[in-house]
Design a protein around this nucleic acid. Structure first.
Lengths: 229, 229
DNA sequence: ACCTGAACACCGTTCAAGT
DNA sequence: ACCTGAACACCGTTCAAGT
């Protein structure tokens, strides 16, 4: 019985049709690869099964449902962000670096970012991230209550922006095209008498709106934190 | 021919099976009601057709596809926010009020907010909102390029936070329960030696995390804008 | 002119059967 | 013990046919 637990990894599993031996880890890695290679819309249980060389329903031996699988993958993304982080002792620079790492990792896995932005996993890597961020803010000299408030704002800002930009990135070609033509076709051609402010800013609007405003917002947010310390 | 255009609203339409006469407006209202009553996951073209007493495919006479329908509904929400806004001339107060109105309207229609946060509709009310916000920022004395950058940040901040908080509000009972127990069960009971920062902040974390951080973040953001003017 | 309904190519998930 | 595959209850959308 003890052996079963300790050697869980080595339990004999029947290989699939194509000889793969399934595991939680292999499924998560394949899931991430599928999203990275073929886009978020390619992630269905059937396609994941096919990529694993297994029947889609075999995955349900390892994850209760698709949502549970994606939450596990979400904690994995936090791990990836943390792995690239090294504290420098400069709290503002550290916050900025952490924000950019989280944002970048999320944008590389948009489907997961969208699903997990508003979820608390309570898993290993999420806890480490909370501890690290609270440490940075408390180390900056904020009292406990303020550190918590700013941690909350910081993490919600980064996660909500990640989800927003991930959703934009995941739009189908037709929808992305519609956004471009809304800006160039509609906003670029409004009568100046009726829309003087848009007319005065057209060039800036057309060049700015397709890009993310995350860096601008982050910098404004961090400068406000610095000002209250 | 001219009559056809001018009196477009009064064109004779064949009633559906159940006697309803379809229109863009009726479809949008039914769509909003369906989402409000049964959640976004209940919104399928087939269900919408059923709620209209029509075949699902009849909707395609009025909206090219589901996405186009949702964009129209999203623009309706913008109209609702704008209807409650009145400029005071105090740019900071006006921005704050607009942010809170948009946030509140979105949170009252969480399912639509989630679906539309990252979309550009290019429609009537969205255009009016852009014009209004750019006007506030240019009126505050920001140059055109800066006004556009700050408009972009402002609207993305409000929309992304709306979607984040709407998604949290819309979690199933099981998932909401899981979040509570993650905070109280997991974060409330971590060993202080390993997680000193979480341990020092436990009380504040447990009381702060269930609430939205939108107001804190918005105030920090606006104070940063004020500081750069 | 407008609505209908069959059809196509998909989903996530369950469960009895196979090995 | 684990994987398979049929089956169920859905999707969005197209298009020929009906009225």
């Amino acid at each position: 019985v003890a052996t079963d637990r300790v050697m869980g990894e080595r339990r004999r599993r029947r290989p699939t049709r194509t000889g793969q031996v399934l595991s939680v880890d292999l499924i998560m890695r394949t899931c991430l690869r599928l999203i990275a290679q073929h886009g978020a819309e390619a992630l269905s249980m059937r396609r994941l099964g096919a990529a694993l060389g297994a029947d889609a329903t075999a995955i349900y031996r390892y994850f209760g449902n698709k949502d549970e699988l994606l939450l596990a993958v979400a904690d994995e993304l936090i791990a990836q962000s943390l792995a690239q982080f090294e504290a420098t002792g400069d709290w503002l620079a550290d916050l900025r670096r952490m924000a950019l790492l989280m944002y970048r990792t999320n944008l590389a896995n948009p489907q997961v970012a969208i699903l997990s932005a508003s979820r608390v996993t309570g898993r290993e890597h999420e806890i480490r991230a909370v501890e690290t961020l609270l440490g940075i803010l408390r180390g900056a000299g904020f009292d406990d209550a303020t550190a918590v408030r700013y941690y909350h704002s910081f993490v919600d800002l980064v996660l909500s922006y990640s989800a927003l930009d991930a959703a934009a990135q995941v739009l189908g070609p037709a929808q992305a095209e519609a956004a471009v033509s809304a800006w160039h076709g509609t906003y670029g051609k409004l009568p100046p008498e009726e829309y003087p402010n848009i007319a005065a800013s057209t060039a800036e609007l057309l060049s700015s709106m397709p890009d993310s405003s995350f860096r601008t917002t982050l910098d404004l947010f961090l400068s406000a934190l610095a000002a209250t310390r």
